[in-house]
Simulated assay, not measured.
Amino acid sequence: MSIKTTPHQLLLLADHLKLSLLERQRAFALNLEPTKQDAHISRTLNQLQDGLEALEAQAADLDGPEDSTSDLAKARKQYEELYAQFHGQAAPTADLRHPNDPALTDDFAAAQSRPGQGSGRRSAKNVRFRDEPAEEVEDSEEIANRAALFADQERYRDEPAAPDQSIMDNQQIHAYHKQVLRDQDEQLDLLSQSVGRQRVLGIQMGNELEEQNELLDDVERGVDRHTGALDRARKRLGHVARKSKDNWSWVTIGILICILVLLIVLLK
């Protein structure tokens, strides 16, 4: 093997094989298909065999006597028992039902458990259903709460309930309607006052907008004036620049003529 193997690692691999075989036996007991893990178990057996051969070759090179109680001998013995159990040549021994590493004791116990084993069976819980919900017995307090919740006096109304006019005489009915009309008039007066306030606010907002528009017009006129002044100043600067350029041209021509005259005089 390319990776260095120790006897302790081989014993852990043997524990893994033990668990796999115990799960395989458990699957047989539950009438399941245990052959799904056979390829994995076979590969693990081959890995264990390769590791044993590598360690035995190292021990032979060192010429050291192999102690029957050593981890290597123990791993070899467990490999032979696991191989025989997997191929059906022998029944599992007691040593194969216990792990080499005490930390795996719970896993081995779980793998050897059978359905129905445990702290105790749970009592069956029966649930009865009724075809008609009305047959269920309701608590009196629950009925009272439901009646209070859906009572007519608890319902919300946008308008107050009108009195029963069947027990009122003509004068009482007339007085009631006059009172209703007075209440409506008061509400209309309040609504009219509110509309009037809204109208005043609208007029004030309109006046404010007109003033703001006038201010914006003044700003726009000022911007136009300054823009015109800047344009005129730009034109004047351009005119001055052109004149200056023309003047410098005439000065240059005069200087050149003077130089030419001097050259003619000197050459004569």
Rank of each mutant, 00 (worst) to 15 (best):
A162E: 15
Q47F: 00
F129E: 12
L190C: 01
G228H: 07
Q25R: 08
V219S: 03
Q78P: 00
D107M: 09
Q204E: 12
Q153E: 15
A90T: 04
E66L: 14
E208G: 07
R221A: 08
R225Q: 11
S42V: 05
A94D: 15
R43K: 08
V180W: 00
E33L: 09
G116P: 11
S42Y: 05
S194M: 04
A14G: 04
P92R: 04
L201T: 10
T105V: 08
Q112Y: 03
W250Y: 12
A110G: 01
L45T: 03
G51C: 01
S42A: 12
E33A: 13
I203C: 05
R128P: 00
Q193A: 14
A94V: 11
V195Q: 12
A124W: 05
R76V: 01
V240G: 04
Q25I: 03
V200D: 15
D218P: 00
A59M: 09
L263E: 12
P163H: 04
V251S: 07
Q165I: 14
P163S: 08
G222K: 07
A162K: 13
S140H: 08
K243M: 11
L82Y: 01
L17N: 04
A84G: 10
R114C: 06
Y176V: 04
A229C: 01
L17P: 03
Q184K: 12
R236W: 08
S68R: 06
L237M: 11
D38V: 02
H40Q: 08
N100F: 03
Q49V: 00
A27R: 07
A229R: 06
L45E: 06
F86R: 09
D158M: 10
M168N: 05
E33F: 07
V219Q: 07
A134E: 15
G118P: 12
D158A: 13
I259S: 06
A148P: 01
K235T: 08
L266S: 13
R122Q: 15
N126E: 09
S194W: 02
R128H: 12
E210Q: 11
Q179T: 15
A110H: 06
N126L: 13
E33P: 02
L45G: 04
R43M: 05
R26N: 13
L55C: 02
V265D: 13
I259D: 04
W248M: 11
A75G: 06
L96Y: 05
I253K: 11
R197L: 10
G51S: 09
Q47M: 04
L72C: 04
G64L: 09
F150R: 13
V251M: 12
